[in-house]
């Protein structure tokens, strides 16, 4: 660092730094902590100790009831199916598209890149009315397939940019060396390029999974039969019906957080590089 400041001043700066960091950490964690706290507070203590920092007794009853007596396990499963399928398809499709943008020079490439960028920025609310009607007409309302198709299309542009940046990071020489060594283009892809882009594909998979797991509005609009609900839809309708069962709702929320947090832990490393590569994604 740059020298020349007095010791006392430096101490003060360090204290300020840690205080600021502490505030950010508290702000980030507090809501999650609170959800967790309510989820382990026994029903009987909720009204008396609802706003204390930690209840006098803790219980896992709420979790037990969510898992046994509600449809949440089913919602959870639906969400897993939708998110995993979406993430897998998007990663495949985006890998192919990203490879094309990274490795070929062809007429119309700039136009394609621009189109992809455009879909990144135009408001999705624009397509809510038509999609609601079109999906109804082709019978994809109330089906997880319909959701998977929509989520895949929404995420493919972002994922393509992400994959393109990973392919760009692999020198073209490697592929050419493989082709001279005896590979066809497809073999070179499978034996050299894919192994080297696996971390990138993992990151893309994670980003898309998180996005699909979080989506609410289209799911809410398209799904209303009980056994097709995703977690987001299930939780929201649950609130509508049993608005006062706080403990169970929060227990369910904590469960919904688990996969997202797991993926997040895995994605951590890619956040800074990944997001700058893909530029713009909520």
């Amino acid at each position: 660092m740059i020298a020349g400041r007095s010791r006392a001043k430096r101490r003060l700066a360090a204290a300020g730094l840690y205080a600021a960091v502490g505030l950010y950490v508290a702000f980030a964690l507090f809501p999650l902590f609170w959800t967790f706290k309510i989820s382990v507070t026994p029903q009987s203590l909720l009204y008396g100790e609802g706003i204390t920092v930690w209840p006098s007794a803790a219980t896992l009853d709420n979790y037990a009831r969510v898992l046994r007596a509600t449809d949440f396990p089913r919602y959870f499963l639906n969400s897993v199916v939708v998110s995993v399928t979406t993430a897998a398809i998007v990663t495949l499709v985006a890998s192919a598209a990203g490879y094309s943008l990274s490795r070929f020079r062809f007429r119309g490439k700039a136009a394609v890149a621009f189109l992809l960028l455009l879909t990144q920025t135009f408001p999705l609310v624009m397509v809510i009315p038509p999609i609601y009607r079109l999906m109804g007409e082709i019978g994809l309302t109330n089906s997880l397939t319909g959701l998977i198709v929509i989520y895949t299309a929404f995420n493919v542009a972002f994922a393509t940019f992400l994959m393109q940046s990973y392919f760009d990071g692999i020198p073209k020489d490697l592929e050419e060396a493989a082709m001279i060594d005896g590979c066809t283009r497809v073999e070179a892809l499978r034996r050299v390029i894919v192994p080297l882009t696996l971390p990138g594909m993992g990151a893309t998979l994670g980003f898309v999974f998180t996005a699909a797991w979080s989506e609410l509005l289209f799911a809410l609009m398209l799904i209303n039969s009980e056994n097709q609900k995703t977690f987001a839809v299930g939780l929201l309708t649950f609130i509508g019906k049993f608005a006062v069962d706080w403990g169970q709702m929060m227990a369910a929320s904590v469960l919904a957080l688990v996969p997202a947090c797991l993926f997040f832990a895995f994605l951590q490393r890619y956040l800074v590089t990944g997001l700058t590569a893909g530029a713009v994604k909520g």
Binding site: Y24, V25, A28, L29, P31, L32, W34, T35, T210, W213, S214, L216, A232, L235, L236, I239, M249, S253, A256, L257, A260, C261, F263, F264, L267, Q268, L271
Partner: peptide, 15 residues
């Protein structure tokens, strides 16, 4: 501090 970004939006809203 990056964790809130991973929290599904509907959960952020509810929380």
């Amino acid at each position: 501090v990056f964790l809130p970004w991973a929290v599904p939006t509907f959960l952020s809203g509810l929380t």
